[in-house]
Every structure is written in structure tokens, then in C-alpha cells.
């Protein structure tokens, strides 16, 4: 599994890393990006992935931080590609806390959560400290999950944006978007079909436009940096989502 350092603050010691593009991943499993924020004495795994990729993820992580430093896990929502490895992390990091939307507690516990402490994130979002670094849990409800959060780091100006910005591309693609216009072809259907609500989408865009973002880091596909972040927000604003309902309405009308 590849790991790439996204940012490193020489003063605070905070680092963002992305893990993914695992060449040994079973073919039919969707490729995912996992993230790690490591400060001097602590670390947090963000959407650590499914059971199938756990060994690759574990082996990648211990190149960058000792396990005892990983004191927090974040799950943006309840999907298996996000957090079905929980039962394994639960045994590997028994001292950790899991930050997850409150709505999904009873569901996520089905993956196994005997040791890790479940910390529910309220609907309005919250903040947490990793050493001295303050991280924000930004609401992204109904995008696509009914209780959903993203993580914003105002120091590094990185927004981990879950399924927003996700693209379905095969193969060992570059970590960052290089040609935004060409990249929209890989994102369009995903956003139109997975995201159910234009209202939720527009509320999120309004909230995120207020943040200063250098890197937008989705859970699938390439990351956005610099002007591509605003390009993405403009593109998403103009996009109609929830198309399965439109298809249904058209079928009924016919």
C-alpha cells in the first residue's frame, strides 16, 4: 500500500498522510484512501478501511507511527469500506477512541467494538484535540450517509471530505488531480447516483466555502489541491444529484 505525506508542519510536528493504491487489494473491492494525522505523541486514523485491507494498512501505518500513539480513530459514516476493520483495530488499539456519528453507534458496533471507546459526534459537529492540534468534525449529513462528517484541520488547511470528491478510476492513478475537466468524467456518476439530496449538497458547499482549504482529500480516488478545490465546489454546485429518483419518475411517466 502506498503512503504519501500530504503536509508536515515543522513547528507543531503535525503530519497528514494518505494510504491507498494497494496493488494486492482483491480486485472486486473498491479502492479507498485512508488517512493518518500524526502529532508528536498522538495519532488519529481517518476512515481506516475494510477488513480486507487491514494487514496492508497496518503494515503501512507502522512505517510512520508506533501503534501506541494511535489514540483516536475517526469514521465518517457506517459503510463497510470505511470502518468494517473496526473489530481488528479494536484488538490492536484497545486504548483508542472512535469518533463516529452518534446515529451509527448501534450499527458500527456490529463490526466489533469491545475495547475501543465510542465517542458519538453530535449532528451539529464538534472539535477534538490531538496534542495541541484542534480538528473540526464538519457536518456532511446525507452526503451520502444520513449521518456523515468530514474532518477539517485549520492548521494544515486540509479537508478530509469522505465520499465527496470521490472518483471511480481503475489502476494505479496519481494521488492528485492533474486535469480537473478530464477528472469530472470519473466523478459525475458517483456524485449523481450516491448523493441523494441537492439541498444537503448545497448546504455543505456553503459551509465548506467558508473554510480555507489547500487540499481536499476524498475517500476514493485523487485528491484536489490549490485552485482545483474551488473548481470542484463550483462543479458540484452545478451538478444535479439524486438521479435514481429522476429515473424512477421518468419510468412512471412513461
Amino acid at each position: 500500500m502506498k503512503s504519501t505525506v500530504l503536509s508536515e508542519n515543522k513547528v507543531s510536528g503535525a503530519r497528514w498522510l494518505v494510504f491507498g493504491r494497494d496493488p494486492e487489494k482483491p480486485e472486486k473491492i473498491i479502492d479507498t484512501n485512508q488517512y493518518l494525522i500524526a502529532t508528536r505523541n498522538q495519532a488519529m486514523l481517518l476512515d481506516p478501511g475494510g477488513i480486507e485491507i487491514f494487514p496492508a494498512m497496518l503494515s503501512a501505518v507502522i512505517h510512520h507511527t508506533p501503534l501506541e500513539n494511535i489514540t483516536h480513530i475517526f469514521a465518517s459514516h457506517q459503510d463497510p469500506d470505511i470502518i468494517s476493520s473496526l473489530g481488528l483495530w479494536d484488538r490492536t488499539l484497545p486504548q483508542a477512541k472512535l469518533h463516529c456519528p452518534w446515529l451509527w453507534e448501534g450499527f458500527v458496533r456490529h463490526f466489533g467494538c469491545d475495547n475501543v471507546e465510542f465517542v458519538p459526534i453530535p449532528d451539529e459537529g464538534s472539535t477534538m484535540k490531538l496534542d495541541g492540534l484542534t480538528l473540526q468534525f464538519v457536518p456532511a449529513h446525507y452526503l451520502h450517509s444520513s449521518a456523515n462528517f468530514h474532518v477539517y484541520d485549520p492548521e494544515s488547511k486540509i479537508l478530509m471530505s469522505g465520499d465527496i470528491g470521490a472518483a471511480l478510476e481503475k489502476g494505479d492513478v496519481p494521488m492528485f488531480v492533474e486535469d480537473f475537466e478530464a477528472h469530472t468524467a470519473h466523478m459525475r456518476y458517483f456524485h449523481q447516483r450516491w448523493m441523494p439530496s441537492n439541498k444537503a449538497k448545497n448546504a455543505w458547499i456553503k459551509r465548506v466555502r467558508a473554510l480555507e482549504i489547500d487540499i481536499m482529500a476524498p475517500q476514493h480516488g485523487r485528491l484536489f489541491q490549490g485552485d482545483d478545490v474551488v473548481r470542484f465546489l463550483d462543479w458540484l454546485e452545478a451538478l444535479d444529484v439524486g438521479i435514481a429518483l429522476d429515473d424512477e419518475a421518468q419510468a412512471e411517466a412513461a
Binding site: P55, A56, L58, S59, A60, I62, G87, L88, R91, T92
Partner: peptide, 12 residues
């Protein structure tokens, strides 16, 4: 779980 963790250790 043990086998998966051992696999991760081996890969590392």
C-alpha cells in the same frame, strides 16, 4: 484477528 495482525507485521 491475530492472523491479520501477524500478516501486517510480516508485510511491514
Amino acid at each position: 484477528s491475530r492472523d491479520k495482525v501477524a500478516e501486517g507485521q510480516k508485510r511491514a
